[in-house]
Amino acid sequence: MAKKKIRVRAKLKGNVVEVKALMSHPMETGLRKDKKTGKKIPAHFIKEVVAEHKGNKVIVAHWGVAISKNPYIAFKFTGAAKGDTLKVSWEDNMGESASAEVKIG
């Protein structure tokens, strides 16, 4: 698997923080077949993405296999200041996980 990376950007506009995150993950549905062997490729997908600001969960995303490969998520929240840390993490169905922290700019 590729590097487990999350790229996050959080920008304060007025009093709203706009967050955009891009994760690298294959997001296999479990329905696809390997063309060479004809065997099904097992499902491998991110189940949960959590964004935390000062220990509060801003958003918890529950994903199924219908989310595209290398998933992207964007959301907005209020109540944060410039320089605050936002933590984004994910966990997939095979128990792998990754997380990243950014300063809100």
Binding site: V16, K57, A74, F75, K76, T78, G79
Partner: peptide, 14 residues
């Protein structure tokens, strides 16, 4: 998506 109390009703994904 479960949203926190300060989260806006806005979500984008692919």
């Amino acid at each position: 998506y479960d949203l926190g109390p300060t989260t806006k009703g806005f979500v984008s994904c692919r």
